[in-house]
Amino acid sequence: MSHRFWLASAAALLPALLAAQAAQAACYIVYTADQQVVYRAQTPPVDMSRQLHETLPLLVPGGSMVFSLDSNGCELEFNHLPVASRAIRASALPLGPRAPRAPRG
């Protein structure tokens, strides 16, 4: 096999590896509206298959979430989400596809 083949293969593989790496965050941090940290862990506090604007406000209204590939500082988990928010996270989020909304009349 030629050098050109290996170079083309590596060039095609690199974007796939970078995309796979970016898809898995190593640290999730949730802030309240007044920028207080209420959650820090290596597991996401919400269902990441759904859009954040659908799930995060149920946990922390007005809050925000930051996630990164760097796990430094996330080894010691920190979970000060309100108890009611934990119950919402565990049971109230729909698991399947969203049902279509009824037209407003």
Rank of each mutant, 00 (worst) to 15 (best):
L93P: 03
L13K: 05
M65D: 02
L7T: 14
G73V: 02
P94F: 00
G73H: 04
S64A: 12
P44S: 11
C27H: 05
P94L: 02
H53S: 14
E54F: 11
T55Y: 03
T32R: 11
P103Q: 03
P57L: 10
D70R: 08
Q42Y: 00
S71N: 14
L59V: 05
L56D: 06
P45L: 00
S85I: 07
L18M: 05
P103C: 01
A23S: 15
Y28Q: 09
S9Q: 10
H3G: 15
F5H: 15
V30E: 00
Y28M: 09
A25M: 03
N79S: 02
R50F: 04
R40K: 14
F67C: 06
V60I: 09
Y39A: 00
Y31R: 09
P44W: 03
R40N: 04
P44R: 01
L7W: 08
F67R: 15
R40L: 00
R40P: 02
A11R: 02
T32N: 04
A16N: 06
A41L: 04
L76C: 06
A84C: 03
D34W: 03
A19L: 15
S64N: 07
G96H: 11
A10F: 12
E77V: 04
V83N: 06
L81S: 07
A16Q: 09
I29H: 03
N72T: 13
D47R: 13
F78Q: 08
L56F: 02
W6C: 08
D70P: 02
A26H: 04
R101S: 10
L7F: 04
A22V: 01
P57R: 10
L69I: 02
S49Q: 14
L81A: 09
V46L: 12
H80K: 14
Q21G: 07
Y31H: 14
Y39I: 05
L93R: 11
P15F: 09
H80I: 01
R4P: 11
A22W: 03
Q42H: 10
S2D: 10
P100E: 05
L69G: 15
A16R: 08
A23Q: 14
L17W: 11
A33D: 07
A92H: 14
A26V: 03
P94T: 03
P82M: 11
L76G: 10
P57T: 02
R98L: 15
H53I: 01
F5R: 10
C27V: 02
L18A: 07
M65L: 11
F5N: 14
A92N: 13
A99K: 15
D34E: 14
A19D: 06
L59I: 08
L7C: 06
V37T: 11
E77F: 06
H3C: 13
R98Y: 10
S68V: 04
P97V: 12
Q42N: 01
L95F: 05
M65Y: 00
L13A: 15
L69H: 12
V38Y: 03
G62S: 06
A23E: 15
A16I: 07
L7E: 00
Q21F: 09
A19W: 11
P97K: 12
A33L: 08
L93D: 07
H80L: 09
Q21N: 04
S64Q: 13
R104D: 14
Q36I: 05
R40Q: 08
V38A: 01
A92M: 13
A11F: 07
P44Y: 00
A84K: 13
A16H: 09
H3P: 11
L56W: 03
